[in-house]
Design a protein around this nucleic acid. Structure first.
Lengths: 339, 339
DNA sequence: CTGAAAGCGCTAACAG
DNA sequence: CTGTTAGCGCTTTCAG
């Protein structure tokens, strides 16, 4: 069951196959009559252009590679969804690769995508470690990073302003009269998370509060991790009136631990998340959080990438999007006496 | 910045480029010595095989196309994640297209994928309508459907046993002494959902209960829809002790409406979902539900597809996986007096 | 064991 | 306006 090619329909119509090619593209230099005939034949025989062959000669595939840790993860899947839609709107298809937060696999799929001749790569790195081994490849294909993790690399990246996000959140909590705020789940080996911790510290300093941390050693956030960590926290008497969690997942884990420990949120403890994953807005979760503008991040990433693809000479650009506060039900104003 | 090709390294080593090609593939007919030299040169010059060219001559791309309604949707994103991982393990990459539950777009991306010369397509159809327009294309590329929606098409499909799922759930509720069970969110224009409704009816008949439905006109499930529908339900006095929801999303929407209406779950009303999306297990949601075995569905779908790809002559196969009950906290045993 | 040559389906000069 | 030709990077006979 061979696929019908340009040659088949050339023979059918009785023209050369370059004429067919021209009829199919919007070449002006073709008579209306022949074009009609060609188009008719294409329909009759069910011709579909072969993009592989086309890519071969055009030197571009119109495919964008996307590297993410995993897609079953509300933040990533939302982002991926926006990216796919927007890219397709722009005439590009998406080839998705997951890495399971595995550094070696990040390498592997990057190479894979390069071999596939993708026109560009949107890369969501899980680590802040050096990408030395990837460097020669990155030079070979337009890449935009979606994260501040690699901000020191001479590459384009887009991210939310993590530092500003936690600062915003901390100020909000302060405005609600909280003075003892715990930063929950600091991760030291991620630039993104260092920045979040930094924003919290900055706000604390400005507002005259003592920063206080509960660290997480885990390489990525999960509800489970938040749960485990929060259990530790609740095992001792509560020394805080509010917590700023490093991510929504962590916050949701704390929600469960709180329920079990009899800590009421927000009555006994205000809880602030980060990311605004779709779970956060769920009725029974109802988490107040710092929102990352996912759709804007996605479309901007694609636009940046296409820009690099079309103008290879342009300088690297770094775009930092503003986070925003989404007020829901997990934070409560403290009456002054409680202070 | 041209990419280095097989020819470049042929010149560098001083052999013909077919020798390079042979060294790179596991051809036995090559001296260890030359192969070493070639491999060394490849490393030195940073050669990466061009899969587009390779695809061209091999007549296959080792790419699988995946068509889903959207990826920001817990069920789909989990499934997609499993599919990507397993496919890559098998040497295939994934090209993902979303359709936004739009029939015209299903067509469009299918054609697109065919043009991209994908070796096969995993298709999650949103509709039960005829796929007449797609028929000629489907014949041209191995396709497996993930859904019972197209069970009448002479094509391979894999799905969970929807009918058995609701039957299982209804029997469970009956075992908990519930006799007045509402089926919530029946969708009439989807075969999948007709089967779920059927399973519920079958169980009702067997167990001597009167089936009762609340229909949804919406083409797909969402928390919002469940919420809206449940508000209607709770506006009148409650005539049921349990509800079997058509999907987890619908059930979660009901959870919110219940909270607002002062209906306690499970004390006042037992609630059963369907799908076991990742939200369902969330601490505060804790939904008892019928689980679709997502990982098995994903790997089986890939295996079925690869099978069709490698043996084009094999007959269509239909695989129906067994659902299972996941007991969590949203269903309660009724004491007999309450009956 | 290795080289030469054909060809995958298509586009893009270059001629007419 | 249309046909001829070369060639994209690679695999694979077919000869040595």
């Amino acid at each position: 069951m061979r696929k019908v090619t340009i040659k088949d329909i050339a023979k059918a119509v009785g023209v050369s196959y370059s004429t067919v090619s021209r009829s199919l593209s919007k070449s002006p230099e073709i008579s209306l009559e022949t074009r009609e005939k060609v188009l008719a034949a294409c329909r009759e025989y069910g011709y579909t252009a072969n993009y592989v062959a086309k890519s071969m000669v055009m030197g571009k595939t119109e495919i964008i590679g996307l590297i993410v840790s995993s897609m079953d993860n509300p933040f990533m899947s939302e982002l991926s969804d926006y990216i796919e839609r927007y890219a397709r709107e722009k005439g590009y298809n998406l080839m998705v690769c997951t890495t399971s937060h595995n550094e070696k696999q990040e390498d592997e799929v990057f190479r894979l995508l390069v071999g596939r001749q993708v026109d560009g790569i949107i890369f969501f790195p899980s680590f802040s470690t050096s990408y030395d081994n990837l460097k020669p490849f990155i030079d070979g294909v337009p890449t935009v990073f979606m994260s501040e993790n690699l901000r020191d690399l001479p590459e384009s990246y887009i991210a939310v302003d993590n530092r500003e996000g936690t600062r915003l959140g901390t100020e909000y909590l302060h405005r609600l009269n909280h003075r003892k705020i715990l930063y929950f789940g600091r991760r030291k080996h991620s630039t993104t998370h260092q920045l979040r911790a930094q924003g919290y510290m900055d706000a604390c300093r400005e507002l005259g509060m003592e920063p206080s941390f509960m660290d997480s050693d885990h390489p990525f956030s999960s509800i489970q991790k938040g749960y485990a960590l929060a259990r530790e926290l609740f095992a001792r008497p509560l020394a805080y009136t509010a917590v700023a969690a490093a991510t929504d997942s962590l916050a949701i884990g704390m929600l469960q631990a709180a329920g079990e420990a009899g800590v009421r949120i927000p009555e006994d403890l205000s809880l602030l998340g980060f990311d605004d994953i779709i779970y956060a807005g769920l009725p029974v979760i109802n988490l107040t959080t710092i929102r990352q503008p996912k759709e804007a991040m996605a479309t901007t990433a694609v636009d940046m990438l296409l820009d690099r693809i079309n103008n290879p000479m342009t300088a690297y650009s770094h775009i930092i999007l503003a986070p925003s506060l989404v007020e829901r039900g997990s934070c409560q104003r403290l009456s002054c006496q409680n202070n």
